[in-house]
Nucleic acid binder design. Structure first.
Lengths: 123, 123, 123, 123
DNA sequence: GTGGTCTAGACCACG
DNA sequence: GTGGTCTAGACCACT
């Protein structure tokens, strides 16, 4: 479901948050789908349940999931809205980076090249 | 010369590093220019000299400045090379973000809009 | 594990860096092995934790170890690559010294003598 | 006569020491040759006379030059002895590096390759 | 005056 | 418990 990399400098709880959020926004987890319980996920990854707990709390704060007491955690049904917000964030980041690139002398055609669809990552 | 924002989640030393590196890469600080001494900059920002010291050490490691004991710190003369490398990094970041945006449903015209020149940035 | 010599003109943090890097490159510390915590090693050597912290930061920058907040520091798994690079560096140093020796009048047989295997080094 | 590089991390006085010692040991400056006065060299390099003073003191300590009060500084006539000592030092350094290279897995033919006479640095 | 190293002690985030 | 940042203050080497 989600991969955890111990060598990743990001804290573990953040990897869980990002992983689940990504699945939800991409549509791999649809609205009202139940996600694994805290203990279950902690077992699966052999990490501290507190860490999963924290990740779920953050996901709820972001509106990605909702908790139904005694029944479990479920994917929110406002995913479309979240996806739009997220796209705006990414757009802002790209705009900022583009301006910085220009300040360092990048040309317009260079910028266009960077956002072109890349092939299937040939090796 | 460089601004420090205490609400910025990045550590102070990193803000100093990024600020000076940016000035050097943009060409506002030219090769062999002397930059403020550790103590001087610490006074100016009312922060501990050790924090500036750490920032300068990182800048030297990156090849942005060189330090001469007893004389001060100076902008390196390999700035052009560093600028090219930095542009490549920014390009990679933009490409990654563009792919993610596509995965969330962004269209090509939306992507192009993000990298369009925004007004009011000319100096 | 590592020895610290106060009469060594090198700073302490550098002795720690070199010592641990050497152990890792020689294979005495294998990939993903956990190394002593900052505080632990500081206690062992009776030096300030900040000094160890600095050494570990440098080791991480060199790619010898990776740090995980709240969990500890671990030997990197790219050690083989680093070993090759290190060997190249040593080779360059030897070449430079050999040229200098020739400039001072050293003969070829003298040079060959210096790189002959010395006894009593096997472990 | 000697080059000074402000970007060299070595202190300036050490660059002067190394430069003059090298000239003497290589034979470019022969015994009892007079070298420039402190003030003269300080002027030439536009650096502090104290720095040259310190360099000359160190050179005298090493036995490379001798000072004749009121007459100036001269290259020592024990250069041959110094050259031998220096070669021994270089030999020791090479031996140490060779052992370290072996510890990292270098083979004997690799070691021999490093001390082979290099061509005239074709570019 | 300059940069560089080290100590002592505090606070924060993470697990 | 872990690593990471910051402050305050000291000492050294270099110019």
């Amino acid at each position: 479901m989600v991969k955890i990399d111990y060598r990743d400098p990001r804290p573990i709880y953040e990897q869980v948050v990002d992983g689940i959020e990504d699945l939800a926004l991409r549509g791999a987890l649809t609205a009202d789908t139940q996600i694994p319980s805290v203990r279950q996920l902690a077992m699966e990854f052999s990490i501290n349940p507190n860490t999963i707990q924290r990740a779920y709390a953050e996901l709820e704060r972001r509106g990605v999931i909702y908790a139904a007491k005694g029944r479990g955690n479920f994917i929110s049904d406002d995913i479309a809205l979240l996806r739009t917000r997220r796209l705006e964030e990414i757009g802002d980041e790209i705009s900022v980076l583009a301006e910085r690139a220009r300040a360092l002398g990048a040309g317009e055609e260079q910028l266009r090249g960077w956002i072109e669809r890349k092939g299937a990552d040939r090796i």
